[in-house]
């Protein structure tokens, strides 16, 4: 034991320079993101991939008796739908629990008592989980490509476009689940986020004139849902992939921009509420 050695402890850096401030911001956010990523990986949340891989490959083999066209169509439809659901479940449950777990387990104190604004924690968590989703998506896409190959189909640019939009949608879901987790418990946040997902996919329906007009009690509620929630169907181009219809690049750009806005809004709101939240 050699306590009390005369080594000098380093001081924290001077954060007055604007460049340094930006650098520090990025560093802390990515450190939190890295830690979150590590945590999700070590908690084995990616086990769902094995299930996905098993189902999709089994399916591609069992469709052997169908014609090539039908086989590829079913594989496209089923594969993209399964990836969407798998990603959704991860985004909802990991996203909702991530912050709640930190707060209830008090590990948030490790970060919240350090000289960083609280929004760094939120953004770091978001990036960390989003990166986990990306990895999940990448591996699932690999298995999807194998199963397509087994069905004598192939991965096209349309698949990449569809997967990109699915990934953007997951970003919206994840940001929303983080927003709800700032305001409520993980369980409630999961329920609200699933409600948001369902409402977002029925946005076209809730906006229908025949439903929002009239004296029904439900009508104003539907109108409100239609106004607040984003239209998540913008990110669903599965039918275009299934029927081999090209997706215009203009559509892609506007859908990605639309998604970016609905990622930023819940994140900014979550940041505002989180700043004042008692931990």
């Amino acid at each position: 034991m050699c306590r009390g050695t005369a080594r000098r402890a380093p001081t924290v850096r001077n954060s007055r320079r604007p460049n340094h401030k930006m650098e520090t911001t990025m560093k802390t956010i990515f450190a939190i993101a890295g830690n979150t990523f590590k945590e999700t990986i070590r908690n084995k949340v990616l086990y769902n991939i094995l299930l996905f891989a098993g189902i999709i490959i089994a399916l591609s083999i069992s469709f052997g008796q169908f014609s090539v066209f039908a086989r590829v169509q079913v594989m496209n439809d089923f594969g993209l739908a399964t990836m969407s659901i798998s990603g959704l479940l991860l985004a909802v449950f990991v996203g909702s629990a991530m912050l709640g777990k930190e707060i209830s387990g008090r590990t948030i104190y490790l970060m919240a008592t350090k000289p960083i604004p609280r929004w760094h924690i939120l953004v770091g968590k978001f990036i960390g989980v989003y990166f986990t989703l990306l990895l999940n998506f990448a591996i699932m896409s690999f298995f999807f490509a194998i199963s397509l190959k087994l069905s004598e189909g192939e991965l096209t640019i349309m698949h990449v476009q569809a997967l990109t939009l699915l990934f953007v949608e997951l970003g919206v879901i994840l940001a929303t689940s983080l927003f709800f987790s700032v305001l409520s418990s993980p369980t409630l946040a999961s329920i609200f986020t699933i409600g948001f997902y369902i409402g977002g996919h029925f946005n076209d329906l809730t906006g229908m004139e025949s439903l929002t007009k009239g004296a029904s009690v439900v009508a104003p509620l539907l109108k409100l849902i239609n106004l607040i929630l984003p239209n998540l169907e913008h990110f669903n181009v599965r039918s275009a992939v299934v029927f081999n219809e090209s997706i215009p690049s203009g559509y892609m750009v506007s859908a990605i921009a639309y998604g970016a806005i609905f990622i930023l809004i819940p994140l900014i709101l979550a940041g505002i509420f989180f700043e004042k939240k008692d931990l």
Partner: peptide
């Protein structure tokens, strides 16, 4: 991880 949160220079972290 906490050195990063405290913005302790990278070169000083191990010591």
């Amino acid at each position: 991880f906490l050195c990063e949160m405290k913005d302790i220079p990278k070169g000083d972290r191990t010591s």
